[in-house]
Amino acid sequence: MHFGVVSFPGSNCEQDAVHAIRYLGHDASFVWHQERDLSKFDAILLPGGFSYGDYLRCGAVARFSPVMEEVVREAEAGKPIIGICNGFQILTEAHLLPGALIRNVGLKFLCKTVALRLENSVCKWTDAPAGTVYHLPIAHNEGNYICDPDTLKALQDNGQIVLRYCEENGEVLPNSAPNGALDNIAGICNERGNVLGMMPHPERVCDGVAGNRDGVDFFNGIVRMLEGAVL
């Protein structure tokens, strides 16, 4: 199982992702943003960071990197794609996922560990039961998810909402999202379930450096799914 981790100029979580994936016993390689062939990878990861400094709008420039054409093609072919933080922003800019991420409601960068509830979704990236509560770090200035009401309804109806910000007990309250995200959305997938975008950083909590391993499911889940499909 080989993950391709894309490096855009300004990405800064690509090495964390590669470390986490290798720590979990899978293969991972850096993919330069000018690469045009992703066929050798079983899954693609768009990492966090500040691609192109996020100068125009988060992810707006990265979306035009040569590698993104291939990412779109692979996504349409059903290859698992995950975008974390800035990667999620790039996926929405590339229209692989609906909606957009705007500035946090408090207008400040937020770095903290938050509680998240896994929803009942079509997402293929984790096979844990719906209702599982994870504690994952977030670190973003623009993580406030928005979309129009029709899109939101479609997300809800199609089971595309993967993660919601919640309280410690798993209950989702109107103000559970620290960044003001619509419907407490922290992560969504496409209709097919192969493309996942999420603001929290599972790759930071895989090797237990700070005592937490809640991110493991997001990498092992897709591996189990793919290996199951192969067998």
Binding site: N12, C13, Q15, D16, H19, A20, G48, K108, F109, L110, C111, K112, P137, A139, H201, E203, R204, D207, V209, A210
Partner: peptide
Amino acid sequence: IWQQYDHQVQGNTVVL
């Protein structure tokens, strides 16, 4: 204050 700083990137922060 420190919530505004990314203190976990690079994945090596043991004590926050």
